[in-house]
Design a protein around this nucleic acid. Structure first.
Lengths: 117, 117
DNA sequence: GTTACCCATCGTCGATCGTCGATTCAATCG
DNA sequence: CGATTGAATCGACGATCGACGATGGGTAAC
């Protein structure tokens, strides 16, 4: 979408006339903006961002029992954050007996990273 | 949100189920996580994300009066969103007479983009 | 069976969010 | 001057968030 970026010197408009005609438009439609914002919102908490950082840098699946002592919050609170990340599609989990292993869903951050670039 | 690496040794462990063997820890310290999460949080709203999208793709400064009609919210609400983006350091504004022109602060998304990579 | 353990969910609380209409502020025009 | 205009701020509202403790659900060991 090519955009005319002429910034014409504005003068106070006459009564009843529109302020200015918009010459800029979003290239991201509403649905994609919603998806991207969902990912961003999930990353908008320091604990969740560090959780994703741990899971990304660690190539594999990490047990919750390892994640809990890393943060100064209770176990239910951490579980809540992990659920947020799951709902956003960023991570997923896998039960193995008593334990739950979390991992970053491959490619789940690609769209957001692509937009950011 | 501490990152202390005191992995309490598990007292009980199911036979043959390895847990807590790998040492995992965030590579992002607390301060950086806070800064990154602040940016992510600011982008965690569809309207704000589209605002940044408009301002980024339009390599110049855009008048608020052009932004308002793009979204189905009131002018005060849009001003509120722009303030959020300003507080996060993503955009800045410049007054010219009656009008205010917004633009993306160069490099303000680089750190976040770098982490996401 | 019983007990111990890990993780998820529930209920609750205060704080923050997104939105609006009304108002205020600042700059310009007549 | 007073009137008008664009943008920011204010005050209020319901909704959502992040945190906790308590509880529930399953699995493994005794």
């Amino acid at each position: 979408m090519s955009i005319d970026m002429e910034l014409a010197p504005k003068t106070k408009r006459a009564a009843g006339e529109p302020c200015c005609v918009p010459v800029v438009y979003p290239e991201v439609d509403r649905d994609r903006a919603l998806r991207l914002a969902t990912v961003a919102k999930a990353l908008g908490d320091p604990i969740r961002l560090q959780l994703v950082d741990v899971l990304r840098k660690h190539a594999g699946k990490v047990c919750v029992c390892e994640l809990v002592p890393l943060f100064d919050v209770s176990q239910p609170t951490l579980s809540h954050h992990l659920k947020k990340l799951r709902d956003a599609g960023i991570v997923d989990s896998e039960r193995q007996g008593l334990w739950a292993y979390y991992y970053v869903v491959p490619g789940s951050l690609d769209d957001f990273g692509g937009w950011l670039r």
